[in-house]
């Protein structure tokens, strides 16, 4: 387990914890056990306990995964999502992405004349699928094209842009936005990773690159 307290530690330390075995228990269960029974100072986020909120994303053996959706096994290494600002132990900064929502207007900019009950709205299936992105930030942590400044939140920004691109009520040119952010760099990369099954490349990157 990864422990880090910026007030006291210069760099993170790895610590081993023994948690009793329980059939089909999850990594989240193990973290809860440690916090409740061994070391109350361990910090981690979680919410729904069944992959419906995205708060429990961590790295398990070096790979992003949802703690609540991964079985606990002997010898697992659990650490925070890498590449994001670390606050403490398994807790990474989530506020920066909210800033990007504002900066890149990652919200519906409705065109005139759309109202919920009157006008029919046909959203392609891809759009609906992208709506179920948990915003767990795993994809950001794995992206080789992520910059440290402007647009640090790709590919999550692209997922949002594509979802808005597919929303027939939205009037902004999302393809142009993606281009400005440098989506061309993604053309041959193919390294997008989502632990929750969002087809980032197929449903977001390719359509934003123009099909």
């Amino acid at each position: 387990m990864h422990r880090f307290n910026p007030e006291a530690d210069i760099k993170p330390v790895w610590k081993a914890y023994a948690v009793p075995y329980e059939n089909k228990n999850t990594v989240l269960g193990a973290l809860q056990y440690i916090q409740e029974k061994i070391d109350p100072s361990l910090a981690f986020r979680y919410g729904c306990r069944y992959r419906r909120c995205g708060l429990c994303a961590v790295e398990i053996n070096g790979k992003p995964a949802m703690a609540c959706y991964t079985y606990a096994e002997d010898g697992l290494r659990v650490g925070p999502l890498s590449g994001l600002h670390l606050i403490r132990d398994l807790v990474v900064d989530r506020k920066s992405f909210f800033e990007e929502l504002k900066k890149y207007s990652l919200y519906l900019e409705p065109s005139d004349g759309h109202n919920a009950r009157g006008t029919p709205v046909m959203e392609p299936e891809q759009g609906a699928r992208l709506r179920s992105c948990l915003e767990c930030l795993s994809c950001i942590s794995r992206c080789p094209n992520r910059s440290s400044g402007e647009g640090f939140g790709v590919p999550l920004i692209y997922v949002r842009l594509a979802q808005l691109h597919f929303d027939p009520r939205d009037r902004k040119d999302r393809l142009a936005q993606a281009k400005l952010l440098g989506i061309d760099r993604c053309r041959n990369c193919n390294k997008c990773f989502c632990p929750n099954g969002i087809a980032i490349i197929k449903d977001a990157i390719k359509p934003l690159l123009g099909g």
């Binding site: 909210f98 609906a128 179920s132």
Partner: peptide, 14 residues
């Protein structure tokens, strides 16, 4: 859509 409340939460943040 498939994500249920997830989609709602995302829209609300936006």
């Amino acid at each position: 859509p498939p994500g249920g409340g997830i989609a709602i939460g995302n829209s609300l943040r936006g």
